[in-house]
Design a protein around this nucleic acid. Structure first.
Length: 272
DNA sequence: AGATTCGCCTGAGAGC
DNA sequence: TGCTCTCAGGCGAATC
């Protein structure tokens, strides 16, 4: 599933193909996404030039020359490809956006948890982005911020950092890995984690996400062709998906525990 | 207000 | 081979 590093990698991958390009025909084959594709999407995109390819949390944000912005979220199973129009359609190819380069931007999403939404120029803040916490690389994200915000909270620290209102980008995998590196057990109450531990955790979250982005950039670069599937960060996982296997640091068997409906992996010796 | 649960979806993999 | 069942999960909405 695409998490923040994957979305950032995709952004970097498509950027050179879309910047400055003018949009031609837009084909919506299935509007039934997380939110229905607006009926006037095609009409409003036609003729627009793409001036910027940005990202906010897991949303791709394409800035258009009339001030509108196109929000694309990949949900769980979404893909976005830049390809030649000769590439045959496959199941779940929901939206095509033709570019004046002759290529097209194709949105594909089997589970349809993703979204393709037009953000009106008139609205300075999109409702879906309004509540989001800082980006992990934003200077506003640091240990003291987590510490202050977490006081009095009884929820597990893992759920706390996975909450998009707190900070964006710490999905299930990266939360587990960050907590391992910071030496904090995922089930601990957020309100009982110390200031020093949060300082460590904040920098580990940044570290893990940065590593994943760097690796995504090396192995997930074939956007003009077809798939963007690969193992990238997998080799570097210390705990995620490693239940029963020995901890890479101390050899203790990695445990799995469901916290807040999500599988959580940790080392009982390295994490306290 | 914070915590928890629900619902939307399909494909992969397990079990029979 | 083919069916059924379970699980996965982003994230807003509803509920506790």
């Amino acid at each position: 599933m695409p998490e923040l590093p994957e979305v950032e990698t995709i952004r970097r991958g498509i950027e050179p193909h879309v910047l400055g390009r003018r949009i031609g025909r837009v084909v919506v084959r299935d509007p039934r996404l997380r939110w229905p594709v607006q009926p006037d999407l095609a009409a409003r995109l036609a003729g627009r030039r793409i001036e910027q390819a940005a990202r906010r949390a897991k949303y791709l944000v394409l800035h258009l020359d009339n001030g509108d912005r196109l929000l694309i979220h990949l949900g769980m199973s979404g893909r976005i490809w830049v390809l030649d129009p000769t590439v045959p359609l496959i199941k779940h190819d929901h939206v095509d956006i033709e570019l004046d380069s002759g290529q097209l931007l194709r949105f594909h999403d089997p589970r349809r948890f993703g979204a393709v939404l037009l953000w009106n120029a008139g609205e300075p803040h999109h409702e879906l982005l309004r509540h989001l916490g800082p980006e992990p690389f934003d200077p506003a994200f640091h240990g003291d911020y987590l510490f202050e915000l977490s006081r009095g909270r009884s929820a597990a620290v893992k759920n706390f950092v996975m909450d998009g209102n707190v900070v964006v980008g710490a999905g299930n995998i990266y939360a587990a890995e960050s907590l391992f590196r910071a030496g904090i057990r995922p089930a601990r109450a957020a309100g009982r984690v110390t200031r020093a531990e949060y300082a460590e955790l904040a920098s580990r979250i940044r570290e893990v996400l940065n590593e994943a982005i760097v690796q995504g950039g090396t192995t997930l670069r074939d956007f003009a062709g077809a798939n963007g599937e690969s193992g990238y960060f997998q080799q570097d996982l210390y705990v995620y998906g490693r239940e029963g296997e020995p901890c890479r640091r101390c050899g203790t068997e990695i445990r799995r525990k469901v916290i807040g409906q999500r599988s959580s992996f940790y080392c009982t010796s390295c994490q306290r």
